[in-house]
Design a protein around this nucleic acid. Structure first.
Lengths: 328, 328
DNA sequence: AAATCAGGTGCAAACGTTAGCATTGCGCAA
DNA sequence: TTGCGCAATGCTAACGTTTGCACCTGATTT
């Protein structure tokens, strides 16, 4: 069905190897022959088989990316950054998510191995562990927002949350709550630690009641906000695990008639596109998402080319907008 | 470097074919041998080569997906639906976006061909044309939201916008604007036509000044809103190409002190997650995104299995929320 | 005029796996 | 004892491509 190099060779009356070379403008094939073969190939609708190419010794031109979930905009931004540099390097992407399924992460890494990928990027603390405990030896990999792995690109999440908390303190807030991710991942504990640090470095006490669990999404933030405000001594400011949580929180507050930032201030984390356009716009900690992806990919290519690279820790940045009010 | 079936065979003192069969529990291999080989394979860290497998005649277990952009949540939802059923059918996904790059769509389809994919799904009217004009003959494909192609899953976009316009009319609005996608695609012209139909079927005139171009994103909606309200005779309601445009529109209105829905009503299209949580929440036309993806994938698998399938046109649904006010 | 050179091309092995067919023992029926 | 069938395994070709090396033919060098 599919025309192969042999078919072309037969029709042109030459050897398959000549066709192979002619198609890639090998210098030892005459210009005449190259033109003839290429025309013939086009006419016959020849499409090279990637599998065969790959088998015959060439290195793979595909890099893998593992992300938690296709519907999380944060990871999509990262992905988009990775894709950008992959294309620039003439590589393709094989992207896999590992959603709800607990087995899926293993399967994903198995797939990476079976494809003999040139390298891959792992984004999302949920799988870091899964990756690190397997011995998929030789394929170079870069992790995003992981801190122990030698090849990683990360932003200082702990410091980020601390900056958010400090900002709230500087506005006069003393009752500051935190809505967490709600699953035990390194990101979650780092950000929580940042919250504690921010409070303690200013000499304020922490109230365990003011730390509640979200789910990293809007719905989790919404219910967390309601739980917080039902407390006998509700907070006046809420630091959130991420922007989606913050949006949920603001929405939840709105539902029970609490205005942001007039009554309660809210800080997010990520600086998604929507953060700038939500009403009120979100004060948040910026992660340079696309840049993060780009950096990770660049690092991966460096690694693939044998360069020595080292872990990189990017500085977060506070973006002040309207979900935190003026100084009280 | 990588251990192959031959390495295992050598070590076990059997033929490669025996190893191959033992690894897949072939009935004609003794249980003993199977156990021995499998243990040995595990111990040696054997990982099958997908390329070799694929070359040796097996059909590919990968389906391709072409989307416009990784950062557009609408397509990510679709993707997530596709992925779900792909996994259920034990297939993998090869996802490609074709971003800004005009050449990229061709390259993407070339990649599909070179990989000898089992089939693919094309989402996004920008590439439909690119796909339809090429003769990538034998690989089954399903398009999303395309109307001429025999194998497609689509919702009735024209009807959707018409429903939105009718809703606005029923609230008493007469000056209704439309913010388009701004590029000539079938989606854009269909939705525009729905706008015209909605107006004309109620006997209202259309004012060309009230049709302005967005860009499918938030920024485009924002500037469109400002342009509309600067008109000598500004509209009192705005129908938008999609939710992201609507969010931009509401934001733009907010910037110039116009309240939604008190002063102006806004309707979106898609029903993204954020639509329900934006403030004000968005009245919008629901596309069953994830379902759309699932349907498309199911249809693709049916097609791959030789079943006869036909195009499917889903009914849109108006979701009434707070960006459109009570009857005036 | 003989030997060398180089450009142009063909041969064949290799990549890792699968699958059809052939082969080897063996126990068992005739 | 001879022949047979069956279970278990080996042989080999094939998938489509690449690549090192050998080969041929004119043309250039001495």
């Amino acid at each position: 069905m599919k025309v192969s190099i042999k078919d072309i060779a037969k029709k042109a009356g030459v050897a398959p190897s000549t066709v192979s070379r002619a198609l890639k403008n090998h210098p030892r094939i005459s210009a005449d022959m190259q033109a003839t073969i290429q025309a013939l190939a086009a006419e016959m609708g020849y499409v090279p088989s990637e599998s065969a190419r790959h088998l015959a010794g060439k290195q793979s031109r595909t890099i893998g990316v593992a992300i938690p979930d296709f519907t999380d905009p944060f990871y999509m931004n990262i992905l988009s950054g990775i894709e950008e540099v992959a294309i620039a390097h003439q590589h393709e992407l094989f992207v896999g998510s590992f959603n709800q399924d607990l087995d899926r992460d293993r399967k994903l890494f198995d797939a990476f191995d079976q494809k003999r990928l040139a390298g891959f990027v792992v984004a999302g603390s949920l799988v870091d562990a899964a990756y690190l405990t397997r011995d998929s030896g030789d394929i170079p990999a870069v992790l995003i927002n992981h801190y122990e792995y030698p090849f990683s690109v990360a932003i200082d999440q702990m410091r980020g949350v601390e900056m958010g908390v400090n900002h709230l303190i500087s506005l006069g807030h003393r009752k500051i709550a935190y809505v967490s991710l709600g699953t035990t991942t390194s990101s979650d504990s780092l950000r929580y630690q940042g919250y504690i640090n921010g409070l303690e470095s200013s000499g304020f006490s922490t109230n365990p009641n003011w730390v509640v669990e979200g789910d990293g999404g809007i719905a989790g933030g919404l219910s967390a906000a309601k739980r917080l405000m039902a407390l006998p001594d509700p907070p006046t400011a809420i630091m959130c695990y991420n922007d989606r949580t913050a949006i949920g929180v603001i929405n939840g507050l709105h539902q029970i008639g609490i205005a942001v930032p007039d009554d309660v201030s809210v800080v997010g984390f990520d600086d998604l596109e929507i953060a700038a356009y939500f009403l009120p716009s979100l004060t948040t900690i910026q992660q340079p998402h696309v840049h993060l992806g780009r950096q990770a990919a660049e690092k991966l290519f460096a690694l693939m080319h044998g360069a020595t690279v080292q872990a990189e820790l990017l500085e977060p940045k506070l973006i002040r907008r309207n979900s935190t009010g003026p100084k009280k």
